[in-house]
Amino acid sequence: MGDHELNPERAKKTEERSRRNFIAIITAVVFGVTAAAMGLFNLIFMRPRVTYGSPAKVRVGRPDSYSPGSQLELPENRIVVRRQGDKFAAISTVCTHLGCTVNASDIGFACPCHGSVYDVRGDVMGGPAPKSLSWFRVSLAPNGELEVDKNQVVDPDTYLEVKV
């Protein structure tokens, strides 16, 4: 600061230089933020919002359309919806071996392709299957129907309790 008083010419120059720097910094920040936003949103846009595969969330009807203790196969969605008392669960019917659709059988599930056998819980009892069948999250949609989200695998024996 003392310099400025001594040499007004120089003080003016220094002042100009610091203003110049200030503008440069602001510019860099604005540009950086803009570039970051553009980059981020480009990344977001790269990921498709919807795909034409079979939908992950499927609505499978009202709870009262299932009778207690029953089990309904939905081959087009490749799930089984099971009701026990007032509790609901959805189990995948995609064989963990090579992806065939397994059939519900007396003891649980049986794969027609290579003979894998699962029990009612979906655990492997025999055959080439490496792991047990997945259970999916079941929730209640706002319109009162059950909704199965095939993207969310839950632990076996996870049921949704609904007052029917």
């Binding site: 503008i23 510019t27 604005v30 540009f31 936003a37």
Partner: peptide, 20 residues
């Protein structure tokens, strides 16, 4: 000085467009 100011203004304009 003028060039830096112009750069700042155009950067701001770009930011506004991107945000919009």
């Amino acid at each position: 000085m003028k060039i830096r100011l112009a750069l700042l203004v155009s950067c701001c304009a770009l930011a506004i467009v991107v945000v919009a």
